[in-house]
Deep mutational scan, measured.
Amino acid sequence: MMAYMNPGPHYSVNALALSGPSVDLMHQAVPYPSAPRKQRRERTTFTRSQLEELEALFAKTQYPDVYAREEVALKINLPESRVQVWFKNRRAKCRQQRQQQKQQQQPPGGQAKARPAKRKAGTSPRPSTDVCPDPLGISDSYSPPLPGPSGSPTTAVATVSIWSPASESPLPEAQRAGLVASGPSLTSAPYAMTYAPASAFCSSPSAYGSPSSYFSGLDPYLSPMVPQLGGPALSPLSGPSVGPSLAQSPTSLSGQSYGAYSPVDSLEFKDPTGTWKFTYNPMDPLDYKDQSAWKFQIL
Score class of each variant (00 low, 15 high):
residue 2 M to S: 01
residue 4 Y to F: 07
residue 4 Y to A: 00
residue 6 N to R: 12
residue 7 P to N: 01
residue 9 P to D: 00
residue 10 H to S: 05
residue 10 H to K: 05
residue 12 S to Q: 09
residue 12 S to E: 06
residue 13 V to T: 02
residue 13 V to A: 01
residue 14 N to D: 01
residue 14 N to K: 15
residue 15 A to L: 12
residue 16 L to G: 01
residue 16 L to D: 00
residue 18 L to H: 00
residue 21 P to W: 13
residue 22 S to N: 04
residue 22 S to C: 07
residue 22 S to F: 14
residue 23 V to Y: 10
residue 23 V to I: 13
residue 25 L to Q: 01
residue 25 L to S: 01
residue 27 H to A: 05
residue 30 V to R: 09
residue 33 P to Y: 15
residue 34 S to R: 09
residue 36 P to R: 10
residue 37 R to Q: 04
residue 37 R to D: 12
residue 38 K to Y: 13
residue 38 K to R: 09
residue 39 Q to D: 09
residue 42 E to N: 02
residue 42 E to A: 04
residue 44 T to S: 15
residue 46 F to G: 15
residue 46 F to Q: 14
residue 46 F to P: 11
residue 48 R to V: 07
residue 49 S to A: 09
residue 51 L to S: 14
residue 55 E to Q: 04
residue 55 E to Y: 11
residue 57 L to T: 10
residue 58 F to L: 12
residue 60 K to I: 09
residue 60 K to S: 08
residue 62 Q to T: 10
residue 63 Y to N: 12
residue 66 V to P: 11
residue 67 Y to K: 11
residue 67 Y to E: 04
residue 68 A to S: 00
residue 72 V to W: 13
residue 73 A to K: 13
residue 75 K to A: 10
residue 75 K to R: 07
residue 77 N to Q: 05
residue 77 N to R: 06
residue 78 L to Y: 15
residue 81 S to H: 06
residue 82 R to Q: 14
residue 83 V to C: 14
residue 84 Q to K: 05
residue 84 Q to V: 08
residue 88 K to L: 15
residue 90 R to W: 14
residue 92 A to L: 12
residue 92 A to G: 12
residue 93 K to L: 13
residue 93 K to Q: 14
residue 94 C to W: 03
residue 94 C to V: 03
residue 95 R to T: 14
residue 97 Q to D: 10
residue 99 Q to E: 03
residue 99 Q to A: 04
residue 102 K to N: 03
residue 102 K to Q: 02
residue 103 Q to G: 06
residue 104 Q to C: 08
residue 104 Q to H: 08
residue 106 Q to S: 02
residue 106 Q to A: 06
residue 107 P to F: 03
residue 108 P to W: 04
residue 115 R to N: 03
residue 115 R to G: 02
residue 116 P to I: 03
residue 118 K to A: 04
residue 123 T to F: 01
residue 123 T to K: 04
residue 124 S to N: 07
residue 124 S to A: 08
residue 128 S to K: 05
residue 128 S to L: 08
residue 130 D to C: 05
residue 135 P to T: 06
residue 136 L to G: 08
residue 139 S to N: 04
residue 139 S to K: 05
residue 139 S to G: 04
residue 141 S to P: 02
residue 141 S to I: 08
residue 142 Y to V: 07
residue 144 P to F: 10
residue 144 P to Q: 00
residue 146 L to R: 08
residue 149 P to C: 02
residue 152 S to W: 08
residue 153 P to K: 13
residue 157 V to P: 00
residue 161 S to E: 04
residue 163 W to I: 03
residue 165 P to S: 07
residue 165 P to H: 03
residue 166 A to S: 07
residue 167 S to R: 10
residue 171 L to M: 05
residue 173 E to P: 12
residue 173 E to S: 09
residue 174 A to E: 07
residue 174 A to G: 03
residue 177 A to W: 12
residue 181 A to E: 09
residue 182 S to L: 15
residue 184 P to C: 11
residue 184 P to V: 09
residue 186 L to M: 01
residue 186 L to V: 04
residue 187 T to E: 03
residue 187 T to P: 06
residue 187 T to A: 08
residue 188 S to T: 07
residue 188 S to V: 07
residue 190 P to I: 15
residue 191 Y to N: 01
residue 192 A to Q: 04
residue 193 M to H: 01
residue 194 T to V: 15
residue 194 T to Y: 14
residue 194 T to F: 13
residue 195 Y to M: 02
residue 195 Y to E: 00
residue 198 A to W: 14
residue 198 A to E: 01
residue 199 S to N: 03
residue 200 A to V: 11
residue 202 C to H: 08
residue 204 S to H: 10
residue 205 P to Q: 02
residue 206 S to H: 10
residue 206 S to R: 13
residue 207 A to F: 13
residue 207 A to Q: 04
residue 208 Y to K: 08
residue 208 Y to T: 05
residue 210 S to N: 03
residue 210 S to D: 02
residue 211 P to L: 13
residue 211 P to D: 01
residue 211 P to C: 09
residue 213 S to L: 13
residue 214 Y to D: 00
residue 214 Y to K: 05
residue 215 F to P: 01
residue 217 G to V: 13
residue 218 L to S: 00
residue 219 D to E: 09
residue 219 D to L: 15
residue 219 D to V: 15
residue 219 D to S: 13
residue 221 Y to V: 03
residue 223 S to F: 13
residue 226 V to Y: 10
residue 227 P to K: 09
residue 227 P to S: 07
residue 229 L to S: 04
residue 229 L to W: 10
residue 229 L to Q: 01
residue 230 G to I: 13
residue 231 G to P: 05
residue 231 G to T: 11
residue 235 S to H: 11
residue 235 S to F: 13
residue 236 P to H: 10
residue 236 P to R: 11
residue 237 L to R: 02
residue 237 L to W: 12
residue 242 V to M: 11
residue 245 S to L: 13
residue 246 L to R: 04
residue 246 L to G: 07
residue 247 A to M: 09
residue 248 Q to W: 15
residue 248 Q to G: 04
residue 249 S to Q: 04
residue 250 P to R: 14
residue 251 T to K: 07
residue 255 G to L: 12
residue 257 S to F: 13
residue 258 Y to R: 07
residue 258 Y to A: 05
residue 258 Y to E: 01
residue 260 A to C: 11
residue 261 Y to E: 02
residue 261 Y to H: 03
residue 265 D to E: 13
residue 265 D to V: 15
residue 266 S to R: 10
residue 266 S to L: 11
residue 266 S to G: 05
residue 267 L to M: 06
residue 268 E to R: 09
residue 268 E to G: 09
residue 268 E to N: 05
residue 270 K to P: 01
residue 270 K to L: 14
residue 271 D to K: 12
residue 276 W to R: 00
residue 277 K to Q: 02
residue 278 F to C: 00
residue 278 F to T: 00
residue 286 L to E: 02
residue 287 D to H: 12
residue 288 Y to D: 02
residue 288 Y to S: 03
residue 289 K to Q: 06
residue 289 K to L: 12
residue 291 Q to H: 09
residue 296 F to R: 00
residue 297 Q to F: 10
residue 297 Q to W: 14
residue 297 Q to H: 04
residue 298 I to T: 00
residue 299 L to E: 00
